[in-house]
Structure formats: structure tokens, C-alpha cells
């Protein structure tokens, strides 16, 4: 097999595998938004506070997914 093609194949597989980590971020975002929506349903008066904290929590959960993305991007565009 062509060595260049092997490298591309390895990079693609590696980047794809790295992005599995994004699933955790997705689950975290889902849980936090679900909880926030429930809280907003119970306490409509505190919607603003809950929303702010929810966005922050989502951003932190998203960070984990972004680390996976960074690893994947490094595999794709930095490794040669």
C-alpha cells in the first residue's frame, strides 16, 4: 500500500477516534440543560440566574468536547 495513503488513513482513523470524546461533552450538555429546564419550570422567577449558570455549565462541558476536537485537529493538521 502507498505509504502516503497509509498516513492519511491513520490520521483519519485517529481523528475520528479522538472525536469519540465529544460524546461525553454532549451527554454533559444534555444533562445540564435538562436540569436547567426542569429548574426553570419549577422556578420561573429565577430563569435569568439559572440560564446564566446553565450557559456556563454548558460551556465547561463543551470544553471537554473541545479538547477532543483539538486532539483531532492536531492529528489532522499538525502531525505529518
Amino acid at each position: 500500500m502507498d505509504p502516503q495513503a497509509t498516513i492519511v488513513l491513520g490520521k483519519a482513523i485517529g481523528a475520528g477516534l479522538a472525536m469519540i470524546g465529544a460524546a461525553g461533552g454532549g451527554i454533559g450538555i444534555g444533562i445540564s440543560v435538562g436540569g436547567a429546564v426542569m429548574a426553570m419550570g419549577r422556578n420561573p422567577d429565577h430563569t435569568a440566574t439559572i440560564q446564566t449558570n446553565m450557559i456556563l455549565g454548558v460551556a465547561f462541558a463543551e470544553a471537554v468536547a473541545i479538547y477532543a476536537l483539538v486532539v483531532s485537529l492536531i492529528i489532522l493538521f499538525v502531525l505529518s
Binding site: E62, A63, I66, Y67, L69, V70, L73
Partner: peptide, 16 residues
């Protein structure tokens, strides 16, 4: 690392 790569990843992925 976490600070720098969070921002870098989000914005680089956004640019792409």
C-alpha cells in the same frame, strides 16, 4: 493547557 486549548479549539474549529 486547558485555558489555552479550550479557546484555541473552539475558535479554530469555528473558523474551519
Amino acid at each position: 493547557l486547558s485555558f489555552s486549548f479550550r479557546l484555541l479549539g473552539a475558535m479554530f474549529a469555528g473558523a474551519i
